[in-house]
């Protein structure tokens, strides 16, 4: 495909064409997965508590692309996108959301605890900011071993006001641990606007308190997130310590499915959907760079929709966990005390 004359000059961060296209596909996989989750939830084919990542896809896709195999992430209650970007398969993810025996956690965790240690995904987490000390600990393990892996922690603007934020980042900074603290500032801590919670302009400003770099990126720009995370990872691997990245993002859906969203104007959400959609933006860029056209986007979409449909079919046809599982897995080895 030839480059159009109007192609913008961008820093490709050393990424080849396929890698750039892959960003789009990853974001699309998250988007379509989440849209399907919403549909299933509203149809009562999926139950529990679900927090959608729609609108924030560029953060997970950009950040996880900057990591290597062996690196780990800790995640949040809004963790589906993180898991998909870290390489978890849609089938067992959807099965876990439905509480099925074929889910990553055998149906015992659900949306808020989905984890796959084999993929370096240390778990979504129902407790705000709890993943911060856990990622610090993973980084501590790497540091003790003298290995070159990195631990990346996703957390939200709400988490930045939790004591665990201070304790975890401070501890990591004192030892220069290979950690990346990535704040997804989606501007609302559940219902409360970030301006009410944060006496400073940016979460990243707090990095100064720990003597580490604080970086602000546009969370709707997957390349910007990738670039910041890659630099933070290089710094971490070089033994120079953690970085605090703040990705300014926006969630297009409510805090959870069923959120009446009385705390924000419909116009605000509509404007964000128009102006800050990370997929639309990156599709435009790919088009301008001549890396994809309408047919390609249709092809990506068909393939992703098929993959999501297959994940739903897998999950819905999967068995419920055996009642025996109620009492297992509390303890290793025999699972019981």
């Amino acid at each position: 495909m030839s480059t159009l004359p109007s192609a913008p000059s961008i820093n490709r961060e050393g990424l080849n064409d396929d890698q750039l296209r892959q960003f789009y596909v990853t974001m699309l996989r998250i988007r379509r997965f989440e849209e399907k989750v919403k549909e299933l939830f509203l149809d009562a084919r999926l139950y529990g508590s679900v927090h959608l990542y729609i609108g924030e896809e560029a953060v997970a896709a950009g950040a996880c692309a900057a990591l290597r195999d062996g690196d780990v992430i800790s995640s949040t209650h809004r963790g589906h996108g993180h898991g998909i970007a870290k390489g978890l398969e849609l089938g067992p993810m959807m099965a876990e959301l439905m509480g099925k025996a074929t889910g990553y956690n055998f149906g015992k965790g659900g949306s808020m605890h989905i984890a796959s240690l084999d993929h370096g995904m240390l778990g979504a987490n129902g407790i705000v900011a709890a993943g911060i000390p856990i990622a610090t600990g993973a980084a501590l393990g790497f540091w003790i071993r003298g290995s070159r892996e990195v631990a990346l922690c996703f957390f939200g603007d709400g988490g930045a006001n939790h004591g665990a934020f201070h304790e975890g980042i401070n501890f990591a900074a004192t030892l220069k641990l290979p950690a990346i603290f990535l704040c997804e500032n989606n501007h609302y801590a559940q219902y409360q606007p970030v301006t009410q919670d944060l006496p400073v302009s940016n979460v990243a400003d707090r990095a100064a308190a720990y003597g580490i770099p604080g970086v602000i990126v546009d969370g709707a720009d997957v390349l910007a997130v990738y670039a910041a995370t890659r630099r933070a990872a290089e710094r971490a691997r070089a033994g120079e310590g953690p970085t605090l990245i703040e990705a300014k993002t926006y969630r297009f859906e409510g805090h959870f499915l069923g959120d009446p969203e009385s705390y924000r104007a419909k116009e605000e959400v509509a404007a964000a959907r128009t102006e800050r959609d990370p997929l639309t933006r990156f599709a435009t860029l790919l088009t301008q760079l001549g890396l994809a056209g309408a047919e390609d986007f249709q092809r990506y979409d068909d393939a992703v929709r098929q993959e999501v449909a297959a994940a739903v079919a897998f999950a819905e046809s999967s068995p419920e966990p055996s009642p025996d599982l109620l009492l297992t897995d509390v303890y290793d080895v025999d699972g019981r005390a």
Binding site: V72, P133, G137, A138, L140, G141, F142, A164
Partner: peptide, 9 residues
């Protein structure tokens, strides 16, 4: 939390 995270790796 650090103990837990280190155990996970």
């Amino acid at each position: 939390g650090a103990a837990l995270g280190a155990a996970l790796v």
